[in-house]
Design a protein around this nucleic acid. Structure first.
Lengths: 113, 113
DNA sequence: CCGACATATGGCGATATAGGAATATGATAG
DNA sequence: CTATCATATTCCTATATCGCCATATGTCGG
């Protein structure tokens, strides 16, 4: 089997660098497909397909305006992601604390020598 | 072209559900390959290969103990990840704030009716 | 109704990957 | 030195993806 479908999983959706660029481009606010195509140097079909994937995992939503489609970010969808990360945040903060302790210890030893 | 190499990118490394499980299993602390194989229901080669990928992006480090290899988490490697996310955190908090305002507005209206 | 514009979709080829089976490497005990 | 345990690596196949090109869909102006 190959990698799990990109379509069901925010982690996979975000793993694609171009998709991250598209998300970044949308932070500023709603944007039409053409604007994204212009901003990043991607082909129009490429952008449309990436937007589709992002839409399927709920990271973007689409609004129709005449012949254009305006996409906007749905940043709350990144929350599960953030929660997953926070488990590790705890771990790395502990690591930093221990390193702190270690440094302090070294300093003490240095003082005693 | 297919997806960019998994090996150069923390985002891709973490996109694999089994790799996330392995990382989760290592939060508790150092673990031998066999222990991971036992805990999750994965084949030994599978675990070794995933550990290799995780090692290549620096998310785990290996220590040799007799005939075993103990892997431990290197959680600081997730920091860039967290920083990327924080850009969106800002955005989604703004969204929540706006929703707050909206709710408050509704309440006021309700009060006036 | 028609042509131009904006976007979406379908087909295709190249490539990367996950997972399984078998095997290689390396360390330890006896 | 050999059998055994622990892990890594290699070979293989099926499949998912990306990106390109061509084309379909849908919308507006005249």
């Amino acid at each position: 089997m190959a990698r799990a479908s990109t379509t069901s999983d925010v982690f996979n959706a975000v793993a694609e660098p171009h998709r991250r660029e598209i998300l970044d481009a949308l932070i500023a606010g709603e944007k039409a497909v053409g604007a994204i195509v212009h901003d990043l140097a991607l082909s129009q079909p490429q952008v449309s397909k990436h937007l589709r994937v992002l839409g399927e995992v709920g990271l973007v939503r689409c609004r129709i305006d005449g012949r254009r489609r305006l996409y906007r970010l749905e940043p709350t969808r990144l929350r599960p992601f953030h929660e997953w990360l926070s488990k590790y945040e705890r771990a790395w903060k502990d690591r930093l604390d221990r390193m702190d302790d270690y440094v302090r210890e070294l300093k003490q030893q240095g003082g005693r020598l």
